[in-house]
Amino acid sequence: MGVEEELLLVSAAGQPLPQGKEVAAETEGVDVELELTRAQVETNSPVCETSDELYEQLTAMRAELAAAAAAKGGRLLAIAAPPTGEAAHLVTRKPRYQEMEERYGLLAQEQAVCGCHVHIDVPDREAAVRVSNHLRPWLPSLLALSANSAVYLGADTRFASWRSIMWSRWPCVGQPPYFESAAHYDALVRTYVDSGSIMDERMVYWDVRPSSHLPTVEIRVSDVPLTVDETVLHATLVRALVMTALADGSLGPELQPEVLRAAYWLAAKDGLTGNNLNVLKAEVLPIELVLRLLVDHVRPALELLGEVERVETTIDRLLREGNGAVRQRKALREGDDVVALTEIRP
C-alpha cells in the first residue's frame, strides 16, 4: 500500500501561503508533488508492507515538510479546507493546472482542498473494477471517520467534511458507478473525455478508480486526516476492504444509488456525530453501529494483517474524543485557534 497526503501551507498569521514550489524545493528525501493551488503540497509515501511501516513513513514525511515550510516562514496544516483567508487561490504554474484554470475558472481556483489517497496493489484492471464495486457500500463510513474540514474561512460550515461538498462540483467525482468490466469503465471514461467534460483520464475523480499509471486501485474518498494515527487507520481499513473484495471474487453488490447518495451526504454533514445508513439494507443506524458493521465485514482480513486491535482501539478513541471535524468545531466554539490545532510541527 501507499498513501498520498495533501497538506495546506499557511503564513505565520494563518493565511493560505502560495509557496508550494518553494517549500517542495526545501525538502530532502521526501517525494513531494505540487497540487492545483500554490498553497498545497502532497507527500507520497513509499510502498509499505505494514501499518507500522506506514506510520513511520508518514510521521517522518510530515515532520520534514513542516520543517521546510518553517524555513520559508510558513506553517504546515493537516486540514482538508482552508480555515482562514479567501475562497479563491492562485493556481500552480504547471501547464496542466493552467489549462484547468482556463477551462473551469473559479471552480479550479476554489479547490485548495486536501484529501488523502490510498493505493493498494491489485492483480489487474478487472480486479480493480470488482474492488470498486465492493467498496461502494463502505465509502461513506470512510468519509465519516476521516472528516476534517468543519471550519472554512473562519466559519463553522455545519458540515464535518466541507471538502467533500466543495469537491463534488467537478463533473466526474464522488461515488463510482457500478461497473460490469474494465471495458465498461473505459467506455464511460471515453464518453466524459469525448464530451469535453474532463480533459483526460486523470480527471476521473471518482472515490475509487483504477490508477492510470500504477498497478493499483486508488481510494480517494477521505479528507486528509488530522493525525497520522487516523491516516493509518484509514489506509488499514482500505487495505482490508480490498483484500476482502479480492477474496470474494464476485462483481460485488448492486445498490440503490439514492441510498448511497444519502449515506454520502450524511457522512459529509454529520461525520461521527449522528446517524448514517447501512447502505446494503437502506437501514438508518447510529454511526457507531455502521462502523461496527464495517469492522465486522473486514475482520478476517484484519486478523490476517494482525491489525484488529489497532483498528478497534483507534475507532473507539475517535468516537470518544472526536476526529478532526469534531475538534475543529470545538476549538472554534471555545475561541481556540483552529490553525494551531491542525498545525504539523517539525
Rank of each mutant, 00 (worst) to 15 (best):
S168H: 01
R169G: 12
P171G: 12
P171S: 12
V173M: 07
Q175P: 05
P176W: 10
F179C: 02
E180P: 00
S181L: 11
S181V: 04
A182L: 04
A182K: 04
A183D: 14
H184Q: 09
H184T: 06
Y185I: 11
A187L: 12
A187I: 02
L188E: 15
T191S: 09
Y192M: 13
I198N: 05
I198Q: 04
D200I: 01
R202M: 13
M203R: 06
V204M: 08
V204R: 03
W206Y: 14
V208E: 09
R209F: 10
S212Q: 10
H213R: 14
T216V: 04
E218H: 05
I219Y: 01
I219F: 10
V221E: 03
S222Q: 02
D223I: 08
P225T: 13
V228W: 01
T231N: 03
H234I: 10
H234Q: 09
H234K: 07
A235E: 06
A235P: 07
R239P: 02
R239N: 12
L241K: 06
M243V: 01
L246H: 04
D248T: 10
G249W: 02
G252C: 04
L255M: 12
P257A: 12
E258D: 11
V259E: 05
R261I: 01
A263S: 13
K269P: 01
D270Q: 12
D270K: 06
T273I: 03
G274C: 05
G274R: 01
G274W: 00
N276E: 04
N278Q: 05
K281R: 15
A282R: 08
A282T: 05
A282E: 01
